[in-house]
Design a protein around this nucleic acid. Structure first.
Lengths: 207, 207
DNA sequence: GAAGGTAACATACAGACTGTATGAATGTTA
DNA sequence: TAACATTCATACAGTCTGTATGTTACCTTC
């Protein structure tokens, strides 16, 4: 029952997990530039040497943290979307938007994913990390909607970028609003209008 | 004909202009974190003491640079929009979008306004600086469209945020694309669809 | 127009932080 | 078990930001 005798892979995995977890908490609270590597390794109960052995630099640790957050977020959203998969394109999307806005109440998402991500990693790398996760989810729902004839045929890449942009801005708008409740209602309304404009039915269904 | 004998206000203005200009060039090229104050003052032919006398810290200089860029951008877009003011809501907006995408070919806008801005200043302050400029322009065009009965009545604040978000993402999407020409065409198409969904006529006018 | 005062600027310094280099400890393999 | 590789610990060099202190330019008042 000794904690020693761990395999190398286990040792590496343990410190990486500790570092990513610590980075996730601290980056969320104080931003990338606001937290030093010393604070991170202290929070992770690890030495700076371990950090720089596991990650090339502070930026690469941040990338791992972002990846971690994105995985959680997309998994949650996929569950929400899957739960009402039979409800049709518009309802699936609206449900995901509401779930997304709820998730973004946590500063974790706001600061790491939406604010610091592009600046620390550069826009291209940032979107590349979103690609297999949230952005991929939007893309999948869009393609499914098109296959089902609910959504007008059109290139999915630019459209999914436009939609994720609205979702991101909506999240920050709501989270930063003095009156989040009405901000949220208004933003969901905007999303509803935009989404219904994509459906082939054309005319907006009453509400 | 001596360059000396300047009033205090002139001295301050000159160094501020030099610093903002230098910061604008360097921040655009290497990002906020990538350029030190030493490089900035060298580019501006000024001492570090002057910088820290005129600005509280490096972040405040960045805010001034962002303000400077935003002023130029909104002025240019206002001219474009004003030139076809009689063309109606949708055409004004589309023209502005095309002008915006063209502006964003300059890394100045990409990096300072879209990538580093939120991270360096925080999302709230960043949008506050956009508020009187580009965001205000969108808001004005929307309100005018509503007053003219072209746009369905609805809260303007959340809608203008959604629109600026799409414009921002479109800019980065096009600028980062391997094939900017088609990316741009696709994004303009997306914008056209979204905008036409806002008009009261409902049905999309042929083109 | 001279003197005292204030604003603008210059320079030197302290503190913090990142990344690296070197050495120790732990696991792996022959 | 002995040589080797991986993981981690620590000390150090270099850079950067912001401040403190001194100096110069301008302004005001008499």
């Amino acid at each position: 029952m000794n904690v020693k005798r761990r395999t190398q892979a286990e040792r590496s995995a343990a410190t990486r997990i500790a570092l990513v977890g610590a980075g996730r908490r601290l980056f969320a609270a104080q931003g990338f530039a606001g937290v030093g590597t010393e604070a991170i390794v202290r929070e992770a109960s690890v030495s700076r040497g371990a950090l720089y052995h596991q990650f090339a630099d502070k930026t690469e640790l941040f990338a791992a943290v972002l990846e971690d957050v994105e995985r959680d977020v997309s998994q949650h959203l996929a569950e929400v979307a899957g739960a009402r998969a039979e409800a049709g394109f518009e309802d699936v999307m609206l449900g995901a938007v509401e779930a997304w806005l709820e998730l973004c109440e946590r500063p974790e998402i706001q600061r790491i994913v939406l604010v610091d991500g592009p600046s620390v990693l550069g826009w291209i790398r940032w979107r590349e990390i979103c690609q297999p996760h949230v952005l991929g989810l939007i893309r999948a729902v869009l393609e499914q909607g098109m296959a089902a004839g609910e959504v007008e045929q059109q290139p999915v890449a630019p459209l999914s970028h436009a939609l994720i942009a609205v979702a991101d801005e909506a999240a920050m708008y709501v989270a930063s609003s003095a009156d989040p409740a009405t901000a949220r209602r208004e933003m969901v309304d905007v999303a509803r209008r935009l989404l219904s404009s994509l459906t082939t039915s054309g005319a907006t269904p009453g509400r």
